[in-house]
Design a protein around this nucleic acid. Sequence first.
RNA 1: GGAAUCGUAGCUCAGUUUGGUUAGAGCGCCUGCCUGUCACGCAGGAGGUCGCGAGUUCGAGUCUCGUCGGUUCCGCCA
Length: 590
Amino acid sequence: MSFQKRTMKCGEPREEHVNQQITLNGWVQNVRNLGGLIFIDLRDRYGLMQLIIEPENQAELAQRATELKQEFVIWAKGTIRKREKPNQKMPTGYVEMLVSDYGIINRAELPPFEVSDDIETSEEIKLQYRYLDLRRPILQQKFIVRNQVYQILHKYYSDNDFLEVETPVLMKSTPEGARDFLVPSRINKGKFYALPQSPQLYKQILMVSGFDRYMQIVKCFRDEDLRSDRQPEFTQVDVEMSFVEIDDVLTMTEGAIRKIWKEVLGIEIEEKFRRMPYVEAMSKYGSDKPDLRYDLELKELTDAVKDCGFSVFADNIKAGGIVAALNAKGCAEFSRKKIDELTNLAKKYGAKGLAWMKFEKGEVNSPIAKFLNEQDIASIKEITKAEDGDLVLIVSDKWTRTYTVLGAIRIEIAKLSGIYDKIKDKFSFHWVTEFPLFEYDEEADRYVAMHHAFTSPMDEDLHNLDTAPDKVRAKAYDLVVNGAELGGGSIRIHDSHIQKRIFELMNLGEEEIEAKFGYFTKALKYGAPPHGGIALGLDRIVMTLCGTDNIRDVIAFPKTTSGLSLMDGCPSPVDNMQLAELAIKVIDEK
RNA sequence: GGAAUCGUAGCUCAGUUUGGUUAGAGCGCCUGCCUGUCACGCAGGAGGUCGCGAGUUCGAGUCUCGUCGGUUCCGCCA
């Protein structure tokens, strides 16, 4: 054997091991050669251990130690001894290992960046050398958490009679919703598989098959643009249950989340999460995934200003729009520049502008004050509960846009006013429910499913299906924590007639339905039980547990925002032979 | 599809506003010294395709256009 195997991990030695002979394997973090004394920090997944060589007694070892460099892989044998001056920053800092022998197992090139937690190396370099980046304890910790989450979920669902069943990765393309990644078929030239955006239809069919309770931790794929919290391949905790109503799915999910938070962070979460209808979430917080760690509620001003002299408000209301406001407490001191930045934010979200009113020293300072009479201003002040020192921000637009813009402003105000710093360590879980079943797609001039086309309408809204589809609410629910969507699900349609009706409302023709979803509606005709489920974003759960906003931190080998993997260079061209076998024509762009 | 921002030594960045001699700093690296360091210290040294390509100019790291790449956001993400 070319090396001596470890008898202990680098993170393990403590005072109780003093005088023990041990062998360690690991990576050289750092060498401090003081001439008459050499310190080596050795690192593995479990921690960092200080080794010491005393040249006075170990001339040969000291001689060889000069060749030790960062990230060399070594074995080292020696005796644990107590340190007179402990390093209290390290768990192993009360002891050190006096080296009696060691050997280099493998050398390493000089790394492009130091393998340490507090580096500020660019994302580009770190992703090129992802294997070095992943050696950093701060990143390894996140994968330890991720592994904990896998174990907890598997045990929890298994204990509750769920079966993990693998669904295909090569499946039929369903062009509703996100873009599919396509995989050409060699055997069936000109035809394509798609990678699953989610195993939605398979898990519903498993319910038809009587599997009753299904879960799977599964990779999903969406060929859409990336964000700091969005990757083209991501992991979902996919769950489906038969003979259930909304409560059953929510309760089961609450149990899973509580268990994770308890076991990973030691935090007790309330048994029942607050539930909030979509309309309330939007009109109070301007988001379908509101951050409820702080209040800052929005207020509607439509009635108060519908007859006012400011034509921007009045005309918009006449055209069916609304006016709403956010009272930024204590923000009257904001400079013109700061307010301009807020206006730009509002415009980014599609607003035409942002009206503002500063309440200071009993007076109102506002560019729109001259269009309003005293009664208007008094009403606005009363509804927004504005006091001296407050800044009221007002948006006037269509319902959804008004609230979406104010929702973005609300978050910005929370950041600017220091609210965010106070709530960093808090978790606020809740459900958003009663989503609209459809939303109108102006571009396509038709209704599209807001959640997905297999979501059941609420029973009490069924009568509206034919007359006012946009008023129909769905048996759908999203799990939200701290302003981020952790997952969502619904009770599904188990009646093939209702399913067909929904497809019709979405303006899908008979033939189109048959071609796209025929196999599925057919399955529903053979005894489908009532069923429903949920899909949780596993990456987002781990992100929340680890307190990171970046999904790349919790995925071992992530893509950049342009969808590239900088380490292995994919996607990459393939040679013409491969393309020919797939009957794909080479396009010569020259 | 769109916007913002960044790209200069192995790494992090200054220099670009207002074009002008030999492009700097910190860390790292190399050599030497050093017996209690733990961001070791001290002395010396090496190290550059200023992302890439055109253009303007007597002259471009600096100005213009294009292009590649990183990051963030809008659209998109049932």
